[in-house]
Nucleic acid binder design. Structure first.
Lengths: 229, 229
DNA sequence: GGGACCTTTCGGCCGGCGTCGAAGAGTGAA
DNA sequence: TTCACTCTTCGACGCCGGCCGAAAGGTCCC
């Protein structure tokens, strides 16, 4: 009669699996062994976990040579994880290394397929302040600017996904740009070299070029990422 | 460093607790004993579950006489549960009674504090078709119509909550009106007697008067609820 | 084919947690 | 005060599920 949320919640409820899912929120497919290493369990245990996540429809698997790559099953799954993060307590920072990583992630990270963190929030603010985006729709001006950046707006429109929804950012407690448009913009920024993926799963770094470009295009006074490190 | 989603997921992962949370999605506070009955466990077990949900910040408790009423801790929690329902498998219908209840809930139910189900989707569709709502904002016309219905739009705007976001409906797989405006509209429709709460936790019934009123105001061709039963 | 590597399956161990009945604390009515 | 009712705490039981090591598929490279 109802949708049975308990089984899905149980999949997320295990710390090892939660760590894996969180890593997959980076948007890229990761090999089973890497997920084992990240979550700190043996390959055997990780394999068992991944089989459950697969069975539960939270991840998809792709075989490639002797590796098996896993990725999130879709943006709906990513949204569930992000929403859940919004009502979860932050884990207290213990080590110096963690604190550095936390600062990096708060600065800029991916939220599955779009930009999040301070950079993501600033991007959305800038698009609004500059009149690119109004009431969840692109203005003519916004359409032109994004086209110049190489954003495939038409493709984003064709997607069945919501076009430009707000996505609540759990570090900033404010909204960043999500949905089909958020993904398209982020893709373009990566292609332009303004953003590059960091080492840890969800990390994103704004390049020097990107900092200038973002400031010029979106008037987000981008806090100096490099200076912080 | 990250938000720790596993503990919260673990709270939702137990079937008894999930049933309780689902019942609380009706938006009303329910007594501990009633939640025990609904989830089919002893009062002792239910009490233990509720203590955990309380500790985890998913519910709030209010003492009133010898009863202790529990309600969801906020709309963020409701959103998590709804999002989770969106990626969960539907439970196969077993009994006739369940099938009847399922039909009723698919027709109209509350999504914590706003209307969901076919009626909720039709309401949003109608508001758009009639030009009350465009790009997530009320038009002047929409503002007038809602004011006539007794909707406190100003209060909804003052709320820190998002104003008129889409809320994905897990029975219809389409959007209904959520957020501060969705809650305000639903409140007004209840006050006007167009909607009344049903017996089971999340059930809502469109009254005869409501059917006419909704059709006249929102042009939602409301499927005949009464005729179906 | 042989060897290194990645991943999965199997078996067994162990801890955590959901479950209940009984008893206790708090409230309301007579 | 006494009884009835609601809810919580306590202690004990039992089971589910995460964990690992060893061994078995596959895959790639030499």
């Amino acid at each position: 009669m109802e949708a049975d949320i308990a089984p899905v919640a149980a999949l997320i409820a295990d710390p090892s699996r939660a760590t894996m899912l969180n890593a997959l929120l980076g948007g890229r497919a990761l090999a089973a062994g890497e997920l084992a290493r990240l979550s700190g369990v043996s390959p055997a245990t990780a394999s068992s976990h991944l089989a459950k996540l697969l069975e539960g429809g939270l991840v998809e698997a792709v075989r490639q040579g002797r590796h098996r790559y896993y990725r999130l099953a879709g943006h709906e799954v990513a949204e569930v994880l992000e929403t859940l993060a919004g009502i979860s307590r932050r884990t207290p920072v213990t080590s110096l290394r963690q604190s550095r990583q936390a600062r990096l992630l708060a600065e800029a990270r991916t939220c599955y397929d779009h930009l999040a963190g301070r950079a993501g929030v600033a991007l959305l603010d800038g698009m609004r302040e500059r009149g690119y985006l109004r009431h969840g729709e692109l203005t003519d001006r916004g359409e032109r600017v994004l086209a110049d950046l190489g954003v495939d707006v038409a493709k984003a429109r064709r997607s069945r996904r919501r076009f430009a929804p707000e996505c609540l950012d759990w570090t900033e407690r404010r909204a960043h740009l999500g949905g089909a448009l958020g993904a398209a913009v982020t893709e373009a920024l990566m292609a332009a070299g303004w953003l590059v993926r960091g080492r840890t799963p969800r990390a994103v770094v704004v390049t020097e070029e990107g900092r200038e470009g973002l400031a010029a295009t979106f008037a987000c006074e981008e806090p100096a990422v490099g200076g912080r490190l």
